[in-house]
Design a protein around this nucleic acid. Structure first.
Lengths: 206, 206
DNA sequence: CCCCTTTCCCGTACGATGTACTGGAAATGG
DNA sequence: CCATTTCCAGTACATCGTACGGGAAAGGGG
């Protein structure tokens, strides 16, 4: 019973195609023209399904964020799940910060998080704050993790230049602590995600 | 003894003007043309002082990040200082994520942070990780803080629309925990920054 | 003193992007 | 069969970062 011409595509279909592009080539490669071409449509057709690009990215974030882990997870479970998700969709850490997060999947995730905090007796706003901070923590951790992964692969000589600049700065003698860490080298492995996340979480809720 | 035509401006001068624009009108308002106009120069003149816009923002971040707090600060001091800095330069939380941080001021800040962690006996990489996480935490907190501040001021009816959508989602009954938090209302104030930061830090270093 | 080398200045211009506008195309309801 | 409603997409514009190249301004060498 819809009156006019029926849409040739689904909104979900458009969002899924956008996610595919971002997954494969990064968020910068996702332009409206590129997405339209991928769908075999004109660039302006997309604006039938999406108000603007901002909303498209909102929908993309929610689209990939359907929680499928254990039914009654701990905060650590949720954080680990978020990390896996972000590693699978490397554009996510750069897309998430400062977004409204009102889609059904985000609300579902929030619901799980509140359930995990139910036993703490904390007031509601404090729970919300803690969940936001855990997400922020994961974003920061994965951002760092991905940057380090990319650095070794794509531009080894740029990394060398950075290290050189660091050594030059240290040579001035103004940064003794930094020098000590650098001298220490890679003898010790950085702590694992689960380790750091667990410490942070127990700090926040304890 | 410099051979050619002397520069009409200092690199520092250019960066300071860029910071002034971003402070007053946000990071989106900072375009190369706008900055050039502010300096009474042609758009392309800026590229004498800066390789590209990316580097300009790098320099801006370092420019505002000169630590001027107590000489032997704790991690909590450093976090509080970072928060004050970001509140004074609201573009900072959006500019910082995923940046190299090699300027002298950033290295100085890092040095203080390592000094604050000297007593813990942690390995170097763990210290670096903790400092990055604390910074990420502050970025997340202030982002949230600023978003909330702007929401009440600029677009009250958009906030109302968001709340309406939330209430509609809750009306489905799929989000009991979320409903409870919403029903609880603003009866409890969210925890203070110092409070949350202290808990997180003791969790990380403890 | 003149010229030459070096450096910086900046007008013009190009490619890319998000999206407003508009007229045509396709479907249903009377 | 026509009218109405909806979606599709070609064209076009403002804006961005910045490549290019010639002109302008300074010091050094004859």
């Amino acid at each position: 019973m819809p009156r006019g011409r029926p849409p040739a595509r689904t909104r979900t279909e458009v969002v899924a195609a956008a996610v595919a592009i971002a997954d494969a080539e990064g968020l910068d490669a996702l332009t409206m023209r590129r997405l339209a071409a991928e769908l075999g449509a004109g660039p302006m057709s997309l604006y039938t399904y999406v108000r603007d690009k901002e909303e498209l990215v909102d929908l993309m974030v929610d689209h990939v964020s359907d929680y499928d882990g254990p039914p009654a997870p701990t905060l650590l479970h949720l954080a680990t799940w978020q990390r896996d998700l972000m590693l699978r969709h490397p554009w996510l850490p750069t897309a998430v910060p400062g977004r409204s997060l009102q889609g059904p999947n985000m609300l579902g995730f929030l619901e799980r998080g509140l359930a995990a905090l139910a036993g703490t007796g904390l007031p509601g706003p404090a729970k919300m704050e803690i969940l936001a901070l855990v997400t922020g923590f994961v974003v920061g951790y994965v951002t760092h993790e991905l940057a380090q992964a990319r650095a070794g692969v794509t531009a080894p000589e740029q990394v060398a230049a950075q290290v050189d600049r660091l050594r030059a700065a240290i040579a001035t003698g103004a940064y003794p602590e930094l020098a000590a860490v650098l001298a220490e080298g890679g003898s010790e492995a950085p702590p694992s995600f689960e380790d750091v996340a667990a410490r942070m979480i127990t700090g926040l809720v304890g």
